[in-house]
Design a protein around this nucleic acid. Structure first.
Length: 564
RNA sequence: UGGGGGAUCGUCUAGUGGUAGGACAUCAGACUUUGGAUCUGAUUACCCAGGUUCGAAUCCUGGUCCCCCAGCCA
């Protein structure tokens, strides 16, 4: 019954695949990931990528990467490149199986001719508006177009002339001849080809006639010998049409379309339209803004492909639509980074500390563990001296209950160094704000020394003032303040829920010197604070870190509870 | 009022006629030179109503609620 991690077990698609293999329906499965190159990939696509590539991998099958490039007016080579980079980054390899729907334009056209000859397609010369009016409504049947009865010869002639470029955009379309009274609207003579005098990013000016998704997709699948064509729920209604093309044409195979629920995440948006809107209106700084759920945003934020894959595996595949909590994604990010990120000390909001009884001008190199979760990660050395910085949050002149950090008279340990005690506070005369803390240290309590075992309630991270490097930190929170961005007062739109604190830039952070020259993309745990990733904005002598995700903070919970 | 789908802890997800399990989240505790990590414990669910059956989340009947579809987008 219950397996250790049952959510990582079977899903209905895996069952179908395994049954098809068991019954011999297929000897090898072939799946495909078919993005349209008109936008950047996001974590919702990752679910599909992991499903398609993962399923094939598990069963010694193969996966094609096929660009569904049937609409040249919105597509570009910029996107085909970024999509390939993102799929590779996620960790999947399509080998030499890179395809384009546009690569089948000739054959698709031949199939259209076949359809006409069989009396199953016709050229319609109604306007888009008229076609819409003829389509009927959800509850009323549609009406036949007056052109529905054109002869095969006339249809063939018209189609050839459409292809030849004799007609302007919108004057004619090729439609399947199915049933204008079908309760499923997709079967009311859907459009197969439309005229578009637009250059295509791959075929250039060769065509002015472009196939629709409904027509191109099943045929591309069949031509490639796809066994399982996995798509999202909204295409469920299109399946009868998908099958209709394959049943009415001499195709080499008949793939099975299977639909699953797309991924939704709390506190963010996933639709192409909204992502475009956020970028376009400047609510975020480009497609790779670390607050975005795009793969490029997640990567820049410091998220690993391993974490995304683990997340996708865990959430499973199903037909009911739901919304995953962002906390679950964050959990998988922490889990992965905890294992692999080197620890380092960094002070985000510095407060000066002077150790009065520590000799001026003296520096000690203290040994620090790089990663307690990974003994193989080794150790490094951090410089200690009389003047340090600690986190402003780690000092309180009047401590709240259960505050185990620095406060007058209370001993705390400085990580990898000594036990110190605050003896006085220097305050800004005007604001009353603490600007410097004076301490004494106990030389006997050096980490690893004779009195090192003495218990203190708190351990603080710190950096030596003279040795620290300056850095900028970018702290991120959810892009939207509410779990459901659409939860807005009447008359407002989702942008009303944009979280004004989704990005906080901290200049003047102080980090330990081992971080000097850290390359963009490297990930660290800033002890007691969170996981951080070096941002590409970093330059020589200028370090910029993105906070990928904060560490779990039980003090924050205590404090919050005390305030209530 | 047409057609197509779907309803299991707060959120995801197992279950396929035989004790409703897991993860995340939450709460409590242990441990800890990261208030991290780890470990322990706790709370919480089968949409509703009938029926079949020794036994129903699962099968049947009838409801309810939610999602998708009227692009020459995908």
């Amino acid at each position: 019954m219950a397996t250790p991690d049952s959510s990582a077990g079977g899903n209905f698609i895996r069952e179908i695949v395994e049954q098809d293999l068991a019954t011999g329906k297929h000897r090898r499965i072939v799946t495909r990931f078919p993005p349209e190159p008109n936008g950047y990939l996001h974590i919702g696509h990752a679910k599909s990528i992991c499903l398609n590539f993962g399923l094939a991998q598990e069963h010694q099958g193969i996966t094609h990467l096929r660009f569904d490039d049937t609409n040249p007016s919105t597509e570009s080579v910029e996107y085909v490149e970024s999509i390939q980079a993102d799929v590779r980054w996620l960790g999947f390899d399509w080998g030499d199986r890179l395809f384009y729907a546009s690569g089948y334009f000739d054959r698709l056209y031949e199939y259209a001719v076949q359809l006409i000859k069989r009396g199953r397609a016709y050229v319609d010369s109604l306007s888009a508006e008229e076609i819409r009016k003829h389509r009927g409504t959800l509850t009323e049947p549609g009406r036949d177009s007056p052109h529905r009865t054109r002869s095969v010869e006339e249809n063939l002639d018209l189609l050839a002339r459409m292809k030849a470029g004799e007609f302007p955009d919108g004057t004619h379309v090729l439609r399947a001849k199915i049933d204008m009274a079908a309760p499923n609207i997709n079967l009311r003579d859907p459009t197969l080809y439309r005229i578009r005098h637009v250059a295509h990013h791959r075929t250039g000016g060769e065509w002015c006639l472009y196939p629709t998704y409904d027509y191109a997709h099943p045929l591309s699948d069949a031509l490639e010998g796809i066994t399982h064509s996995i798509c999202t729920l909204e295409f469920e209604d299109h399946r009868p049409l998908y099958d209709w093309f394959l049943d009415n044409l001499d195709v080499p195979s008949h793939p099975r379309q299977i639909e699953f629920a797309r991924l939704n995440l709390t506190h963010t948006v996933m639709s192409k339209r909204r992502l475009l809107d956020l970028v376009g209106k400047g609510h975020v700084n480009g497609w790779d803004d670390p607050r975005l759920p795009t793969l490029q945003g997640l990567r820049r934020r410091g998220c690993t492909p391993e974490a995304i894959r683990a997340f996708c595996e865990h959430i499973g595949v199903q037909k009911r639509d739901g919304t995953i909590e962002m906390a679950l994604l964050e959990h998988f990010i922490r889990e992965d980074l905890n294992r692999r990120a080197p620890r380092v000390m960094a002070v985000l909001r510095p407060l000066k500390v002077v150790i009065e009884n520590y000799p001026e001008g003296r520096t000690e190199e203290l040994e620090a563990v790089n990663n307690p979760e990974d003994p193989g990660a080794g150790t490094r050395t951090v410089p200690f001296s009389r003047t340090l910085y600690i986190e402003q949050d780690d000092f309180r002149e009047v401590p709240p209950k259960k505050f185990f950090r620095m406060t007058p008279g209370q001993e705390v340990r400085l990580r990898y160094a000594y036990i110190v005690k605050c003896v006085s506070v220097v305050k800004d005369e005007r604001t009353g704000e603490a600007v410097e803390v004076r301490c004494t240290y106990d030389p006997e309590t050096k980490s690893g020394g004779p009195q090192a075992g003495r218990k203190v309630k708190g351990t603080l991270h710190w950096v030596s003032a003279a040795h620290a490097k300056d850095a900028e930190a970018r702290l991120y929170e959810h892009l939207f303040a509410k779990a459901d961005p659409d939860d807005v007062p009447e008359g407002q739109d989702y942008s009303a829920n944009l979280n004004p604190h989704s990005l906080e830039r901290l200049e003047g952070c102080k980090v330990e010197p081992s971080l000097a020259g850290a390359k963009p993309g490297l990930r660290y745990q800033f002890e007691r604070q969170g996981y951080f990733c070096v941002d590409p904005d970093s330059a020589k002598g200028r370090l910029v870190f993105n906070r990928t995700v904060a560490l779990r903070d039980s003090w924050a919970k205590v404090e919050k509870a005390q305030q209530e």
